[in-house]
Amino acid sequence: MGLTYQRSAKRVLRANFVNSPASDYIVALAGNPNTGKSTVFNALTGLKQHTGNWPGKTVIQAYGNYRYKGKMITLVDLPGTYSLFTNSPEEEVARDFICFGEPDVTIVVVDATCLERNLNFVLQVMEITPKTIMCLNLIDEARRRNIHIDYKKLQDKLGVPVIPTAARNGEGLNQLKDTVNRLASGLICPNPRQLRYEDSIEKTIEELAAELIPTLQDRINKRWIALRLIEGDYSVIASIKKYLGSSTFKEEFEYGTDTPRMGCFK
């Protein structure tokens, strides 16, 4: 049995998050806790779930649909995390979906009043996938506090679309939907700013990435995987085997994504 990347593997992973039937695009919604991510989710999908104000409140993966210009879009609300380095089950869920679930677009919701901390997360997502949109939320709050963000310049520097929104009163949402469609359909081709590391690391990244081609072929970001291997994040190997592997390996690494693992307490 070969180890070509199976489209079905992607479906299996997506099915962990999304049970919805045929939709044109799958869009991931990621971001730090307390950025108004759930508000954006509700505003886009028209769902009227309650959103509290405490860190980590999105404890259940939610997904919802919306229609825009004839396309059916499924939006997956990922847990709010500070980073995508796998230090916790939530971070692993978010990372795995963005990387192995291959969403057509990943929206990163950002708190405009706390840009630096949030940019850190955006840059991490951009390392995984170029198909990233930065949703600069709470822009009304930033204005109120006299924080001025030159988002055109930010967009140029990042190389991915930056859309200012105030999801609470609907500001900017149409532009966001429009950008999602255009990015998903290939009308926009982002050219994300690439983080550079020191020469010795860059050289090794290149070498390892080249060696990963037979295994991963042209689907997953090999530079990113190589970087994780270099820093010793073995959970990424487990995920590769889990989502891309043959059935034997799949079983070995299989666990339910919908229930957090309690490790040694089983």
């Binding site: 940019l119 001025h148 030159d150």
Partner: peptide, 16 residues
């Protein structure tokens, strides 16, 4: 990187 980006694009005037 995030720090340098922020210093380029964010301007604060009389913070409340």
């Amino acid at each position: 990187e995030a720090e340098s980006l922020v210093s380029d694009v964010v301007e604060l005037t009389n913070i409340k």
